[in-house]
């Protein structure tokens, strides 16, 4: 496997039985656990109405700020809303924002980063100056403007976070491509006449999975928390709709922090679980897709 590795690699990837990759993924216990937790989180938030008969916003002022009981698993908040139900429903907002916004920025970033890094020269120069402009732009201004034009809400939040954060993955992917395009196996593929799109997609792209995975898991956490920050500025998801971020942010006074941990801790744990799960899935995916590790 030493000499002629590059052609072997091409051949290997082209045949690339996804079945084998799947096998490698399934043998990674962290990855499988991460996947299971993630699916569970999604199911639990989508299936919230099946798991609790409380709605996210129904209030009961006579039973406010209660500790956990058999009726209220995570207790109630200051106006008697069921924290368990709120945490479940909040998952819908937070998972959507975290995952979709990150996918948007990854898609734009990877696409442009690959083009810039692979073609170099004037294309690189132009794409990267576009990156400079977007990076130089204060995200908050973009958000306030968009929220004004189309109104605040879930879709606005997702789109804005996605549109603002793509330059980082773009620069990451480009930096890998700058090296990749000089590598023999890419040169070889070019020489054999493999079409450009195929080289990028099939031969080069699997090599950037590592940065994409790390960005993905960090980006999901970032997006989930950013959503809460935007709500705080009055332009994100509007109250009383819960999200994990604003459930935690509601505990911004010392007394809630000290005396009512169940009002914020479940949301915090949910974010940690989500991010860890995505990270382990990503790690597993990277190993499974790594073109060098064969069976």
């Amino acid at each position: 496997m030493q000499e002629g590795m590059d052609t072997a690699e091409i051949a290997g990837t082209v045949r690339s039985p996804s079945r084998r990759a799947l096998g490698r993924f399934l043998r990674n216990r962290f990855a499988v656990a991460g996947f299971a937790v993630f699916v569970l989180l999604v199911l639990v938030s989508l299936g919230a109405p099946l798991l609790t008969h409380y709605s996210a916003n129904a209030l009961d002022m006579l039973n406010s700020s209660q500790g956990p009981t058999s009726q209220h698993l995570f207790g109630t908040d200051q106006i008697g809303r069921d924290t368990f139900a709120r945490t479940l429903y909040a998952g819908r907002v937070s998972l959507a924002v975290g995952v979709v916004a990150t996918l948007i920025s990854l898609f734009i970033g990877t696409l442009l980063g690959a083009l810039a890094g692979f073609f170099g020269g004037i294309i690189d120069l132009l794409v990267m100056r576009f990156v400079d402009v977007v990076m130089a732009f204060p995200a908050i201004i973009v958000l306030l403007t968009l929220a004004t034009i189309v109104g605040p809400g879930l879709a606005t939040t997702i789109v804005v976070i996605g549109l603002v954060y793509w330059p980082v993955p773009c620069r990451l992917v480009r930096s890998k491509f700058l090296v990749l395009r000089q590598r023999e196996f890419i040169r070889a593929a070019e020489a054999v006449g493999v079409p450009m799109w195929r080289i990028i997609l099939v031969h080069a792209l699997p090599n950037v999975v590592d940065v994409v995975v790390v960005y993905g898991s960090l980006g999901v956490a970032n997006a989930i928390l950013l959503e809460a920050g935007l709500s705080f500025l009055g332009e994100g998801i509007q109250p009383p709709t819960p999200s994990w971020g604003n459930l935690i942010n509601a505990a911004q006074d010392i007394s809630t922090l000290q005396e009512y941990p169940w009002q914020w801790a479940p949301a915090g744990i949910a974010i940690v679980l989500t991010v860890l799960a995505i990270n382990f899935i990503g790690d597993g995916l990277r190993d499974a897709l790594d073109p060098r590790i064969q069976g």
């Binding site: 200051q78 106006i79 009055g234 911004q252």
Partner: peptide
Amino acid sequence: TYYNDTSNLNALAVIQQ
């Protein structure tokens, strides 16, 4: 509203209900 503190938003949530 321009209020964004927990207690006023909670009061509004009650009004909404």
